[in-house]
Structures are given as C-alpha cells and as structure tokens.
Design a protein around this nucleic acid. Structure first.
Length: 603
DNA sequence: CTTTTCACAGTCGCGCGGATGGGA
DNA sequence: TCCCATCCGCGCGACTGTGAAAAG
C-alpha cells in the first residue's frame, strides 16, 4: 500500500515474515483502536451472543442480527493492475501470500489465481451459491473454527436508491466522507478470535467516465496508476469476533480524497481519481494474538463485495438526482433542504423524506463505545422513534450502534448479506446493474426466531441529533420530550435500559396495528417498496434528464418521494417487530413478518 | 468547455465551564 | 459548607452542498 503509514510499515514487515503470517496493519498504527484492542477477552465464548429462541430475553452481548436476506450479488470489478485490491500485491505490497487466498472448492472466485493476476476483468460477484448455505449459516450464526462469515450491508436500501442513479462520491483534497457510508453487520466469526476488518476501494471497471447528456458515459480508459492508499482499516481493528458481531461495523469516518500527496490522515483517507468508477470491498482477516494476520486458511481471510456500493468519484456532483438524494438523506446537508420546515412538521404519513432521526449520522459520532447490545430490530425501532423520547442522549456518551442505521432511510432495515467470496458459485456477471427482483423473495419462517428477539436494552447515542424527528408528532403517545431529558450516564454505556416500547405500550400497539393494516392492504412491503422505487425512477428518468439535467435541487417527486409511503410503512413495521417482541411478546403476525422479511431463495 | 478548487452559509454534536440541586 | 452529579448554554469545529473562480 502506498498510502497508510501503518499499513506500509506493517506490510513491509509482512514481507519479511512467514508466508502465512502478516503483521496486522492496524497493530503498528498508533491510532487508538477505540474500545481497546484485545479488550474483549472477558467476552469469551461462554457468553451468550446468540439467542435464537423466540421471545427470549436479549443478551446485552447479542449481536445485531436483523433480517437475513441473502441475495445474489452480481457485478464486476475491473481487475486492472493498477487497481488496489487486497489480494493483490500491487498496492498492498505482498499483503497476502497466495496461500492465503487460494481458491477453494467453494468457488472463491474472488481470490482465484486469475483474479490475482488481475488483468482481465474478473467477476467477483458469483451467484450466491453453496446450496442454500445462507440460511444454514444464519441458523447458526455463531461461528466455530473454520466457519465462514456472513456480512450484511446494513443500509442497503439507501445504497440501492443511490445506485439507481449511479452513485457519486465527492472527493476533495482534505477528504470527504462517503454518503451513504459503508456499514455492515457481520456474523459467523469466531467469538474469541481476533480479526482485522477493513475496506478497500478498487476500480470497478477500466473506463474513465463523464457525465454527458444526463447520463454517465465512458470516456477513454481509466488511469490505472493507482497511487495512494486504497485501504481503510476500521479503527477498532483488531478486535474479537464477538466485538465485530456485536453490532454494526460502520465505516462512516472513511474519507475519500484525490490528493495523492496527502501525508496526513492516510489511515482515514482513500485516494481515488475523479471520474472513475470504484467498488468498495470489505475484508475480514483473522489475526493472531500478536497482531499478525493469520492467512493460513481461506476462512481466515474473507472478502465481501456489494455491487450496490459502486460509485463514481467526482469533485463536484454531476447528476442532480444524486445531489438531491444526498441532500434529502444526509443530515449534514440538512441546511440545503428547501422545504425542511414543511418536511418535518407535516403529518408523519405525509412526510416525503426519511427522518434525520434514522440518519446514518448516528454512526458518525464515535466509533468507540461499541459495547452496546444490538437486539434485532433495535435499529429500526429506534429509527422510528426519536431517541430523546426515551433517554435524552444529548451529550450522552456516544455509542456507535445501528440505532440510526441508515438502512431505515428507506424505512426498511433488512440487512443484506453475502457470505465471503469463497462461497461464490459460478461467478456470472451482470455488470453493475442490480436486479432487484431477487429481493422480493419469499419469506422464510426458519429465520423468524431471529426476528423476534426481545429488545432489552436501548442505546442512546445519536438520536439526539434529531430532536426534530417527525415522530415528535407522536409525542402524545411517546411521552413529552421534556419527560426524558435526562442525560444517560456515560459511565454506563453497557447498562441495560428498558425497552422504549415498554414505556409506551399503547402507542406501540397502535403503530403495530396500523402497520399490520398497511401490510394487509399492501401485501408485501418489500414489493411495495420496490415498486415504488421503480415507478419513481421511471418517472424521474422520463423528465429530469430531459428537461433539467443539471438543474439544482429540483426533485420531480419531491425530496425522497420515491421512498415515501412504502418506506415509512417499513419503518413502522420494524417498530412493530420490536414492539411485539419486547413488550407485548407477541410475535409479529406472520403476514407482517413476511412483509418485513424478504428472503431470496437461492435458485 | 470541462474539471477542480475554494470560500461560504447552514446545521449540529462535542466539549467546556458555570449553574443548580441533593446529600453528607 | 463542601462535594458530587447533573443540567444547561455557549463556542468551536466537523460536516454538508453551493456557486463562483481558477485551472487545464
């Protein structure tokens, strides 16, 4: 790797070390791994991290498993020599010896020899294979030795929304955060083993792109010089599998820059080139206690790619639709929302834009205190409810969790997951076009137990970001804001807190009833969502590109219109799920759950 | 003409310090 | 009265997209 200080040094040392052992990039760095490295020993395997039984009390250590929606990833990544990729030595400098990425019978095409050679476009999105192993793995998320991890893209709906318009990411000299940012849930890790988790951004195709005539067109060949850091190591690396699985792994602080010569913050910055298309990848590498990455077996070096994470790096937004999406969804851009007042004072059902309350900004607070339990649906739930209804968390200890998971920007909180690349099957490529239909799959009741974990604890962070949540209109039901304006003791980031729903059972049930009604009328929320997306998109395309290609901040359907009703329904449904499990102990109706969960059955 | 850079305004969390209240 | 915990307000800084100017 050319950029990161820690990385470069450690990778150099790796060259000197044994083939199967590589010094952890994060270990040499002096950046404090928030939460402390190897501080999780107390959280040994004897702890109960998974409580699959329905209605069981949620352990504070329970990882944040949400819905499990396997899908068939399909996309390609340009395997140019200049593209930094983890298994390649081109950028990371002998990062991983071939032994660590030897192709397996499981079809780990990502690390196939051909891919490592990397001159021909290689598919890294094999069809989801492994004969339904997804569900099998889900059923037993706690990994034993040799188990493969599953990774869930937490804010996938939001990513999809951007992906429809071809996501653009601003890059600046000083570095610009991604939005949407990468956020994952991981399952299937060894609870006590230590892992490095990092993101690599590689060229997605060999083209240079330009925005012309309202659309992105290729324009020559990409510059494959590939200078600069392409890897962002999660600041909490290395850490235990239990730690990584406890809650969302957010890369919100990842910054993109076009400043190749940057010599500061290299561990936080990924150097990209404008007008090139990139594909982020998540890597999970098991490390020894001494911080040396253990790549002796393939299951210890896993890589995950979500095609919807592809984006084109730009120095200024080209597509106004993307601009509008950013404004509508990024809480940092709230000031640019023309109709902000009306948006957040209107009736909840009339609100067109997802609430900032469910904004990913929740993840932008502090990556440190991650030791909060993440009950299933907790994120959706809290996303639906202004946190300060329950605990005024202003100035409360920041806690990174998924409470404000950006996935609920779309109202849906499904975690879209893939297993590691080695689980890949035949490797069919469909480019970067996403077929949404698989996500409208059928519901599998086999996963229901995960869906009705109780909400036993509530983390507080970040909801205070959005005191003007649309749910303030529900204050009568959720209690007055003042009633909960008490700071949560920062000394108790773990401390179990009563379920918010417990305090507001009536409204919880009201919401539940309302949502179930909506579910009954609409059939499948997922389908509804997808349909809304499709129709909105076509509408948008029909007009926006032809008449106002570069107009500013004019959204045809209004801000966030495409996700308006269905999204909110999904949000509410998520709330229902929580309510049902944590308060009334009633599992959500099968129909409702079916609507909430959308499982793709691998053909 | 396209792309990049920079200053700007707006939002909001964080951190600090003073004010407040309760208990010893 | 003192100590401690908590509340509250303020300022700073991080962050955003905008829009004009500069650069290529």
């Amino acid at each position: 790797m050319l950029g990161g200080e820690g990385e470069s040094s450690t990778f150099t040392s790796a060259k000197e070390g044994a083939q199967d052992r590589r010094k952890s990039p994060a270990v040499d760095g002096d950046e404090s791994a928030a939460g402390g490295r190897y501080a999780e020993h107390a959280m040994g395997a004897d702890r109960s991290y998974y409580i699959p039984s329905a209605g069981s009390k949620q352990s504070p250590d329970t990882p944040n498993h949400c819905s499990f929606i396997p899908y068939t990833p399909s996309a390609t990544v340009y395997a140019a020599s200049g593209a930094g990729r983890y298994p390649s030595s081109l950028h990371l400098g002998s990062v991983l010896p071939p032994a660590g990425f030897a192709p397996s019978a499981a079809g780990r095409s990502h690390f196939s020899p051909a891919y490592q050679l990397g001159q021909s476009p290689g598919c890294i999105y094999p069809a989801y294979g492994s004969s339904g192993s997804a569900l099998g793995n889900i059923a037993v998320p706690a990994a034993g030795p040799g188990m493969k991890a599953q990774v869930y893209l937490c804010n996938r709906p939001l990513w999809l929304k951007f992906h429809r318009h071809q996501t653009e990411m601003i890059i600046t000299k000083q570095g610009r955060r991604m939005f949407p940012f990468l956020s994952f849930n991981i399952a299937g890790l060894n609870l006590t083993a230590h892992y490095n988790v990092f993101v690599e951004v590689v060229l997605a195709d060999p083209n240079h792109w330009r925005f012309q005539g309202g659309k992105w067109v290729t324009c020559g060949k990409a510059d494959n010089s590939g200078q600069g850091n392409k890897v962002y190591i999660h600041p909490e690396s290395p850490n235990t599998g239990a730690h990584w699985m406890r809650q969302e792994i957010s890369f919100s602080k990842l910054k993109l820059t076009n400043n190749k010569g940057t010599n500061h913050n290299t561990t936080q910055m990924i150097v990209l080139q404008s007008l090139h298309k990139y594909q982020p990848r998540l890597h999970i590498v098991e490390v020894m206690e001494d911080g040396v990455e253990d790549i002796s077996t393939e299951v210890k070096t896993q890589s995950f790619t979500f095609p919807e994470n592809q984006f084109i790096a730009v120095t200024a937004y080209q597509n106004t639709d993307i601009t509008q999406l950013k404004i509508d969804h990024n809480p940092f851009a709230k000031g640019f929302r023309d109709n902000y007042d009306s948006m957040y004072t209107a009736q909840e059902n009339d609100r067109l834009t997802p609430s900032p309350t469910d904004s990913p900004r929740a993840h932008q607070i502090v990556p440190g205190a991650r030791y909060t339990m993440q009950p299933l649906f907790q994120d959706q739930f809290v996303n639906n409810l202004p946190q300060n209804r329950f605990y005024n968390s202003e100035r409360a200890v920041p806690q990174t969790n998924s409470l404000l998971s950006p996935q609920t920007e779309d109202g849906t909180s499904q975690r879209w997951f893939v297993t590691s690349m080695q689980q890949g099957g035949n490797g069919t490529s469909t480019g970067n076009k996403l077929d949404l239909t698989p996500y409208e799959g059928e519901y599998s009741s086999s996963l229901l137990p995960y869906g009705i974990k109780s909400l036993s604890m509530q983390t507080s962070h970040a909801l205070s970001y959005y005191p003007d949540s649309p749910f303030t209109t529900m204050s009568a039901g959720w209690g007055s804001r003042a009633a909960y304006q008490r700071k949560v003791s920062p000394s108790l980031p773990w401390s179990p807190r009563p379920s918010p729903t417990t305090g507001f059972p009536e409204d919880s049930n009201k919401v539940k009833a309302q949502i179930e009604e909506e579910v009954n009328s609409s059939g499948s929320l997922i389908s509804s969502w997808a349909d809304a997306q499709s129709s909105a998109l076509s509408l948008d395309k029909a007009d926006s590109y032809s008449t106002a290609c570069k107009r500013r901040r004019l959204s045809l359907n209004g801000p966030g219109a495409e996700d308006s009703s269905s999204d909110i329904k999904c949000e509410d449904l998520a709330s229902v799920s929580i309510n049902s499990s944590s308060y009334s102990k009633d599992a959500p109706s099968a129909k409702g759950m079916a609507a909430y969960y959308s499982f793709y059955t691998n053909p």
